[in-house]
Computed example of a mutant assay.
Amino acid sequence: MQLDPLLIGVMVLAATAGVLLGVVSQRRRPASQREWPRRWNLNARPIFTTDERILFKELRAALPNHVVLAKLNLLRFCQAADEFEARSWYDRLHTLHVSFAVCTPNGSVVSVIDIESPNKASSARSQRMKEAVLEACRVRYVRCRPGQWPHQALIAAWALGHSQIGPAPNTISDSLHDANDEVARKLRQRRAERAARWAESSFAQDSFFAFDSRLEGSLHTEPTPLQVSGKR
């Protein structure tokens, strides 16, 4: 039976269109989803540059009662006050990092230190954005050039500010921290249902969108160093 030339032409056009759609779809798919790499052509590299490694060691030696974290994304320690603005704030801040974050033992960031790299100078807009975020979160912000930071004896006051270096905690402050922890537990329970609906969101995997109800007393107050001895 002889086919109609018009029908043959329609079939050819349909097949061609299908091939083109497949090619376009393949190109639009992210590279990470196209195919599993046959060769993992990667090498490990150190986290620190030479200057970062030196400053990190000096910060740890000068601040034994604090935790020093390196190469931290800004979104690890700030979040949107309104959950409906979380996406827009994520888009603004997800590219911003800090060199070091000085934290209390419970994880509250009290100070941020940036080493200015001449090879990777951040844009003026990004720098202003970082400064505004840290000011809004009441986090001390210090910047320095490679190798140009204070002597070891002065580095604690430089990193934390003179007002944040105080005596060891007493029983009254310990009681206040215990009360704050109890309030935090109750708030977590009350907000559990509110936070649950974020679990289905496509961007809920990032902790920036997992709203934290812990209103820790030390979050916006001066940190108190831990006691070195075992006596209270």
Rank of each mutant, 00 (worst) to 15 (best):
E200W: 07
V109D: 00
E58A: 08
D174I: 13
L72V: 15
V102P: 00
F84E: 09
L20T: 05
S126F: 08
E58L: 05
I155W: 06
F209M: 12
T224M: 07
I8W: 11
A70M: 09
V19P: 08
S117H: 02
T49Y: 00
E85R: 01
F84T: 14
E85P: 02
F208Y: 13
E222A: 14
S229G: 10
A204G: 05
A210W: 05
C137I: 00
D212P: 05
Q152W: 08
L72K: 13
E193W: 03
L63Y: 11
L134H: 02
C103E: 11
P30C: 07
L21H: 01
L55D: 01
I115M: 05
T49L: 02
R185Y: 13
A101L: 03
L215N: 05
S25N: 04
S126C: 10
A159T: 11
P46E: 05
Q152V: 09
P150V: 04
N43M: 08
S122A: 14
R39T: 11
G230C: 12
R191N: 12
S111M: 00
A121C: 06
S126Q: 15
R60P: 04
I113E: 00
V133F: 00
E222K: 14
S175I: 09
E85G: 00
S122P: 04
P146D: 08
R185E: 15
R190V: 15
K71Y: 14
A204C: 07
K231N: 05
P167D: 00
P223W: 01
